[in-house]
Amino acid sequence: MLSYVAKRIGVSVLTLLLIICITFLLMNAVPGSPFMTEKSTPEMIAMAEAKYGLDKPLIVQLWNYIKGYFQGDMGVSLKMQKGTDVTTIIFREGKFVLSFKLGVWAVLLAVIVGVPLGCIAAYNRGSWIDSVLRVMTTVGVAIPSFVLCSLLLIYCGVKWELLPVISGSLTDWKAYIAPVIGLSFYPMCYIAKLTRTSMLDAINQDYIRTARAKGLKTGRIIFKHALRNCLIPVITYLGPMTAGIITGGFVVEQTFQIPGLGKYFISSILNRDYPIIMGTTVVLAALVIMMNLIVDITYKLVDPRISLIKGDS
């Protein structure tokens, strides 16, 4: 197990290196420069570029980035917060923490509500409960998050005045409600759908008949015997989804005016603030990679038949 994790971490570092290279090349493939504005002269641009080392050959710039990352230095912002360390912007100013807090709540809500909904739908297959849930989850998967967030904002925030209109830095628990719902509704419905499908498959298996023949209660049959067998697809989806949600939904953060990482990521691209683009991409990629590793280890915990290492069972 330990050697497996060590090996996977080694591979992850290589993956991250590759992601850094690709992001760097794509970023630089776009013509223009971060310092190009309507007023700037070519001399000013050249000067600014020289200051931040952007005049050097690409390969040297890339090398500097990689070297920096291994020393824990993600560079400094070129434009948005001129001169500030990217690590400070992402981690110390609370952008990451803000998105992380929202994300964790959203993932929890999506799983805690989505999985039982899926089980209930599967158990009551064909009844009105199943139909209602099916319509709800289909709608949930279909409506774009900006529509849902706008509706939440208009009704809960403005018309009924139940929740704050601007969530800001999430100082109040009420500020969490709307953005967490906005973030989690899609994954919740998707998880419910996934659970329903694999639960339907599981409850027709022979071991469920055995469990019934033993005289177990329905709840125990569904939530002990069937659920664990149908979690694999849900876990597979949860990995990358968690990483995505934790690093922030741009739409949700924009709608509720939350200064999180998602919002910042988009503005950094619009501003062509290279080190911030690189920094946020690397953080997101590292999270995705980490989540995938966690998912693979969870597989083994959920289903003992899965072997992580070839030949091991």
Binding site: D206, A213, H225, R228, N229, D303
Partner: peptide, 12 residues
């Protein structure tokens, strides 16, 4: 039952 291969829950 008939098929002992599938009658026991594989994850417990």
């Amino acid at each position: 039952f008939q098929n002992p291969m599938t009658c026991l829950n594989p994850v417990y």
